[in-house]
Nucleic acid binder design. Structure first.
Lengths: 120, 120
DNA sequence: TTGCATACGGATAAATTTTTCCCCTGTTGT
DNA sequence: ACAACAGGGGAAAAATTTATCCGTATGCAA
């Protein structure tokens, strides 16, 4: 694993939630797992822009942070299922709120994100 | 400015809000500006771990995204004040919710973030 | 026997973000 | 004349995250 050189800040609630939610695909992983897409291959299909590798890595972090649990079925071909823990479920309303704000302001956001600033 | 090589995803609300909120210090900038700390030097004091440079850069992005406005007073020594736009203000409840979730789960989060996984 | 589906993970490269370093503006006070 | 204050920004380095490539394993179907 990567060894941090700049120490973490964990001063306030925002730092703490940031630490578990940062990661390009984590929020989506939580979202889709909550929606019932539990198997790695399903998640990969749902999030085709992410490399399979990063999804594994980020799932492992979510597991470390106790937001999801992983269940491995001893069958062949291998079967794995992720589920949200109660802790993870408590994040769903937060994620909803983020998504809703984005949806409500979709057009405006698209505009400001895509417009080129004076310089670039 | 940096020219992206991997195209943005702007499929859903989560992508969109992510685009304007990602950036190590942006949420805090919005938060402190909302709390009345408007001048660059104040913000730097409030967020001492960020380099002055990044704060400028991220403030400029927030401005581009119409979440803050910048007012330059033609005085000497120079005075600048940032304020939230209405659009920016509409994010405050979202940010509150993030911070609250973090605060409510502070102890647990600290634990899971700092624990070392089996490997590292 | 080759190929496929399912899942895991190491090593390394590439992309992206953040930091560091240094310099610039103009006026006021010493 | 010169340092100090308040704000900006270019260039390059460092830090961090994500992607690419490859190899592991199992049992079943063609």
């Amino acid at each position: 694993m990567y060894e941090r050189k700049i120490p973490l800040n964990l001063n306030c609630g925002l730092d703490l939630i940031g630490e578990v939610l940062y990661g390009k695909w984590k929020i989506r992983l939580l979202w889709f797992i909550n929606a019932g897409h539990k198997r790695p291959s399903e998640l990969q299909r749902k999030i085709p822009d992410a490399s399979r590798r990063v999804l594994n890595i980020q799932l492992k972090e979510l597991e470390k942070h106790e937001l999801v649990t992983k269940k491995i079925y001893p069958v062949v071909p291998p079967k794995v299922e992720y589920s949200l823990t109660d802790f993870g479920k408590s994040l769903i309303p937060v994620i909803s709120m983020l998504g809703n704000w984005g949806d409500e302001n979709e057009e405006r956001l698209r505009n400001v994100i895509l417009k080129r600033s004076e310089s670039n």
